[in-house]
Simulated scan of single mutants.
Amino acid sequence: MALCRRFSKVYRSLHRRTRPAASVSDYAPAVNPFSDPLISTFSNRFTPFNPPNPTYKHFNNSHFSAGNLTLAQSLHYSNLANPKNEKNNNNYSSHVLSWIDLYLPKKVQPYARLARLDKPIGTWLLAWPCMWSITMAAESGNLPDMKTMALFGCGALLLRGAGCTINDLLDRDIDTKVERTRLRPVASGALTPFQGLCFLGFQLLLGLGILLQLNTFSQVLGASSLLLVFTYPLMKRVTFWPQAYLGLTFNWGALLGWAAIRGGLDLVVVLPLYMSGVFWTLVYDTIYAHQDKDDDLKVGVKSTALRFGDSTKEWVTGFGLASIGCLALSGLNAEIGWPYYAFLAAASSHLAWQIWTVDLSCRADCNKKFVSNKWFGAIVFGGILFGRLCS
């Protein structure tokens, strides 16, 4: 008995010295935010919780909120769910905690993920050709029309979301077989195809409201892009060049932006600008496609990553040179001032950096280089803006 009492005193002493930070239960004992039976409650020592999956990846983030976690807990569990901290960067099955999980209602979260609101890079890549064209269409020495740019920014957000919705509806059977995409809302069952279709109609209705504020020529030109938007997801089934088709789709704004300002098309300016965007898309989306090349082979879908294989860097270098050449030709025909070409040299350096340094066997690095293209678009935009002001 004496031995037991001594052991008890030692244990209590150690417990007092290592008392951890307060947990959720210390402040709200009557509330259990982790009501899902698959999720254990927090340990006071910030040790990982232990759901049936030992990798701690497949847990329901809908129970997380800013008020339910201490800062240390938030950082701890964010690190657990962050694939950058894993040695094996090929595991894409985890769902990284985002602002959607923290701030949006649970019922709205699948729709926000369906529109990729937590991944704005697609919106940037769709918006930049629009902004290039609108700025290039401005009168010499003047700023671009801010109202038109705001309309096109909102339109890019809506059209990108609609394109992702169409893609997920058509590819739901394929997405379940690809590690990176199998947790998408439709593929995982978080949304039914009918719910996705209704959401698509809502997005297109909002997009129509924006399109109706443009001139008649722009309305017809903008509506014609829907054929490309609806058919793009099918291209990976029939051709090894779906990235080229994506380029035709994503850069339609290069035509539409000029038409919205000038009421028509000056082909010697906008056609090279449009083609520069197509070649640019072939660069960044081929790099992006290398993330899924192993799964694509198993599923049987096609991409330029599979078409080019070990020659990818040579191909995308050629596309990069073609993109810069078309941008230079468009600026020359538009009579833009000299700052444009200085910015174009900087954009060329950025494109060369991502092509030469990308590790095509590393999914994380491919995604990093892909995301960096928002800065390429920004540099070109800055060049057009300053070039137009100085022309």
Rank of each mutant, 00 (worst) to 15 (best):
L282P: 00
V96L: 12
A334Q: 07
A305P: 02
A28M: 08
N85Q: 09
V178E: 01
Y11A: 15
N32H: 08
T181R: 04
A347D: 07
Y245K: 03
G337A: 13
I324M: 11
K236L: 06
Q213E: 15
A28L: 13
G325V: 10
F152A: 05
P52T: 08
G264R: 10
V31Y: 15
G331P: 08
S65R: 15
N82Y: 02
Y27V: 08
Y103R: 05
L327R: 06
L360E: 03
S62H: 10
W241L: 08
G161H: 01
V238T: 12
T70G: 13
G201K: 09
A305H: 01
P48Y: 07
D365C: 11
Q354Y: 14
D365Y: 09
K84A: 07
W353Y: 15
D175E: 06
K293S: 12
I336E: 00
G201S: 14
N85A: 05
P52I: 11
M136F: 07
K369A: 10
G264K: 08
A150N: 12
P233R: 02
A346E: 15
L204W: 03
I379Y: 06
Q109K: 01
T357N: 15
N373A: 12
F42Q: 02
C154Y: 10
T317Q: 13
V10R: 12
L38G: 02
R12S: 13
C390P: 08
G141N: 11
G318A: 12
A254Y: 00
G320P: 05
S35W: 10
W356V: 10
A156Q: 00
T123W: 02
G163D: 08
G320Y: 01
Y56R: 10
S94C: 03
L143H: 09
T216S: 14
T281E: 04
A352W: 08
A352C: 14
D118P: 02
Q219I: 11
G337V: 09
L212P: 07
G153P: 03
A347Y: 04
G189H: 07
K147R: 12
P20T: 14
Y245S: 05
N251P: 00
P272K: 00
L97W: 04
F46R: 15
W353I: 13
L170H: 09
F64Q: 01
E335V: 15
L234E: 06
H95N: 11
F42V: 06
G122W: 04
P120G: 04
R307E: 10
R116L: 05
C154D: 08
M1P: 14
A328M: 15
S62Q: 09
L170N: 05
Y111G: 02
W132H: 01
S65N: 13
S323Y: 06
S140C: 10
G196P: 02
G300H: 06
S348H: 13
L170Q: 13
H76L: 12
A289S: 12
T317D: 14
L75N: 15
F217W: 10
L151G: 03
I166S: 00
L97M: 11
R182Y: 03
N60E: 09
S303I: 03
D294C: 09
S74G: 11
L158Q: 01
R5K: 15
V371D: 04
Q203P: 07
I134K: 01
R113G: 00
A259D: 04
L329D: 06
S225H: 04
S65E: 11
R182Q: 14
F34E: 06
L75I: 15
V229D: 04
N251L: 03
